[in-house]
Design a protein around this nucleic acid. Structure first.
Lengths: 208, 208, 208, 208
DNA sequence: GATGAATGAGTCTTCATTCAT
DNA sequence: AATGAATGAAGACTCATTCAT
C-alpha cells in the first residue's frame, strides 16, 4: 500500500511464491522425494528463507492440502441438499449439478487435488488420517441423504452406507483417471454420464 | 519330515520369511519409510542376509507387487467372458461372480493388495507406471466387453470407455474402503450390492 | 583486513581446507582406505559439508590429481625445446635444466605427486588410465625429440622410443625413491647426476 | 600317488587352483577391489573352502607376492657377481646377461609381477613395506658392486648409491611399461638396449 | 527480512569371515 | 574336505534444519 510495496515483495507475496513452487514440486516428485531445496530454488529464494514462512516441509504440505480440502468440503456442503429432492427427476438435476461443481472445484486446483489424492492414499501416510477422515465424512453425508431418499421410496438400494461408498469411490477414482492420469477432463460430459450411471444405480425400480 | 528338516531352514523358507516380513513392514510404514533393517529384524535375520535374496529394497517391493498384480490379472482374465452374456439376467449372475472372485482374490492377499494400491497411487512413484498400466488394461478390457454388450442392446450407456472407468473406480475404491480402511469386507454382501448397483447403471432402460 | 574478515571463512577458504586435508589423508592412507570422515574431521568440518564442495570422494581425488598433472604437464611442455639443441654440450646444459625444473615442480607439491604416482600405478585404478596416458605422452614427446637428435647425429641410440621409455622410467622412479621413500631430495645434485648419466647414455660415441 | 588321487583333487591341487585364480583376479581388479567370492568362483569352489587354505584375503596376496619376490631375489643374487668384472667390455657382457635374466624371470610370471609392482607402489599399501624393502636391497646390492667398480676405475660415476637408484628405476619402470602397459616385451632387444644405455652411463670417460 | 554455509542424523549396500552341516 | 548360508561392521551419501551475518 505504501510506496515501498512496489519494489520489495511483501511477506504475503513471498509466502505465496513459496506455496506455488511447493505445489508444483510436490505434484512432480511427491512429498517424500521433493526437497526443500527444490522448492526454494523454484521460488528463487535461499534455503533459509523457507523457514521464515513455514515450520517444516511437512508443515507446508499440510497447509496446501488442508486449504484444498477445506475449500472442497465447503463446496460439497453447499450442494448437499441435493438429496432433499422429492422426485427422481428432480434428484437427477440436482445430482448432476453437484457432481459438476465437485469436478469443477477439483479441476480448478488440479495440482493440489493430485497431491491430496496421491498423498492421501499413498503409504507415505503424511495425510492418510486427514484424507481418510475427509472421505469418511463425505460418505457419512451421502449415507444420511441416501437414507432419507430410501425412506421416502425414491431410492432403491439395500444399504445406504455401502451405496455411499460406491458413489464416493466412483467419483473419486474417475476424477483421478480423467484429470490426473489422462490430463483431460470434460466436466460437462463426465458429470452427465456419471449422474446418469449413479441415478440408475439408485433407481427404486427392480432389476429386470 | 525327517529330523533334519526341523533344524535348518532352507533357502526357500528364508526367502519366504523375508518376503512375509517385507509385506508386513511395507504395509505398516510404506515403501519409503520402511527400512531394510526393519524387514530383516522382523524376519529375525542379519542385515546382510537380505542381500543374499534380493538385489535391493526396491527389488523386493517390486517382486511383491508384480507377483500380486500378475495373480490378480490372471484371475480377472479368466473371468472376463462375463460380458459375453446374452441377457441382462445372465449378465447379472456373471457380473456378480466376477466381482466376487476379484474381491476374494484381493482379500486373500490383502496386505499385498494394500501395498499395491497405496504405492501405485502414491507419488512415491515406485510402481506408479506399473500400476497405472494395470488399471488402464482393466479399463480397456472392460470397455471392449461393454462395447459388445452395447452393440447387442443389452447395455444402455453413452460411452463404454467412460463407463468402464466408472466401474473400475467404483470397485477399486470400494475394496480399498472396506478392506483397507475398515479392515472388514463381507465379500458376498458387497459383491451382491455392487453387481446390483452396476447392473442398474448399465441397464438399457432409460431413466424414468 | 577488516575485523569481519577474521571470523567467517569464505567458500574458497573452506574448499581449500578440504583439499589440503584430503591431500594429507590420501597420501597417508591411499584413496581406498581414506574415509570421507577422515578428511572432514581433519578439516574440522561436518560430514555433510564435504558434499557442498565435492560431488564425491572420487571427485576430490580426481581434482587433486588432475590439477597436479596439468601443472606438471605445463612445466614439462615449456621445457621441451631442450632437445632442439645443436650440440651435445648445449644439450647437457638444457637437459639438466629440464630435469631440474621437473624435479622442482614435483618436489613443490610432493604430497600430490605421491598420490598421483601411487594411485596412477596402483591397481586401485582410479587414475590408471589418466596417469598412463600422461606417461605415454611424455614418452612420445621425448621420443620425437630424441629422433631429431639422432637424425642430426648428436645422439647415438638404437631406438628413440625405447630410450625415451628408459629416461622417463629413470626419472620417475628416482624421484619416487628420493622424495617419497627417503623424504629427501637434493634437486641440484640429483639433477646433475641424472643429466650426466642420461647424457652419457645418449652419447653417439660407441662403447669402448 | 594312490588310486584315489585320480578322482579327487588333493589338497595341493586345490590350493594351487585357488592361487592361480587369485593371481588372475588380483591382476584384473587389484587387491582392494578383488573379492574373495571372485576368487573362489573363478576356482570353482565354495566361499568357505577358501579359508581352509588361506587365513585371509591379505594372506593369499602376501603369499603370492612373497613367493614371487623370493624367486626374483634368488635369480638376482645368482647373477650379481656381474660387477666383479675387471673390464668394461667384460662388464658389458655380464650386465646384459643379468638384465636379460631379470627380465626373463619377470616375464615368466608377468601376472604376479604386475601384482607386486602395482600393489607395491600403490597406496593400498598392502605390500608397500615388503616391496620397498626389496627395492632397497637391490639398490644396496647394486651400490656395493658399483662402488667396487668405481674404486677400480672401471666405472665413472659420482655417487654409487644415486647411480644404483637410477639403474633400478630404469629397469623396473621399463619392464612395467613394456610388459604391463604394452603387453609386449622383447627381452633380447630390450636387454641389449638397456645394457648399452646403462653401460654408457657408467663409462669412466668424461662427457665430451 | 533474507541469506546460504554448515550441520549430522539416518540408511542402504558391500563383503570378509565364520560355522553348522 | 567341502559347502554355502548367515553374519555384521563399515562407509558413502542425502537432505531437513539451524544460525551467524
Amino acid at each position: 500500500m505504501n510506496d515501498m510495496s512496489v519494489t520489495a515483495p511483501d511477506k504475503a507475496t513471498t509466502r505465496q511464491n513459496i506455496l506455488d513452487a511447493a505445489v508444483r514440486i510436490f505434484r512432480e516428485k511427491g512429498f517424500q522425494k521433493a526437497r526443500v531445496s527444490d522448492i526454494v530454488s523454484a521460488a528463487g529464494l535461499a534455503q533459509g528463507t523457507f523457514y521464515l514462512y513455514f515450520r517444516s516441509k511437512e508443515d507446508i504440505a499440510r497447509q496446501i492440502c488442508k486449504k484444498f480440502m477445506d475449500r472442497f468440503t465447503r463446496i460439497f456442503e453447499e450442494d448437499h441438499e441435493v438429496f432433499d429432492s422429492t422426485s427422481l427427476s428432480e434428484l437427477h438435476v440436482r445430482i448432476r449439478k453437484m457432481i459438476h461443481s465437485a469436478l469443477k472445484t477439483l479441476k480448478e486446483d488440479a495440482n493440489a487435488a493430485e497431491i491430496v489424492l496421491r498423498e492421501g492414499i499413498g503409504q507415505g501416510g503424511l495425510f492418510k488420517e486427514l484424507y481418510e477422515d475427509l472421505i469418511l465424512s463425505f460418505i457419512e453425508l451421502l449415507r444420511e441423504k441416501i437414507s432419507m431418499g430410501a425412506s421416502r421410496n425414491i431410492l432403491g438400494i439395500r444399504d445406504p452406507h455401502t451405496t455411499a461408498v460406491f458413489i464416493v469411490g466412483l467419483v473419486e477414482r474417475s476424477f483421478f483417471f480423467f484429470m490426473i492420469m489422462k490430463k483431460e477432463l470434460d466436466i460437462d460430459t463426465i458429470a452427465a454420464d456419471m449422474s446418469a450411471f449413479i441415478l440408475k444405480g439408485l433407481d427404486p425400480a427392480p432389476l429386470p
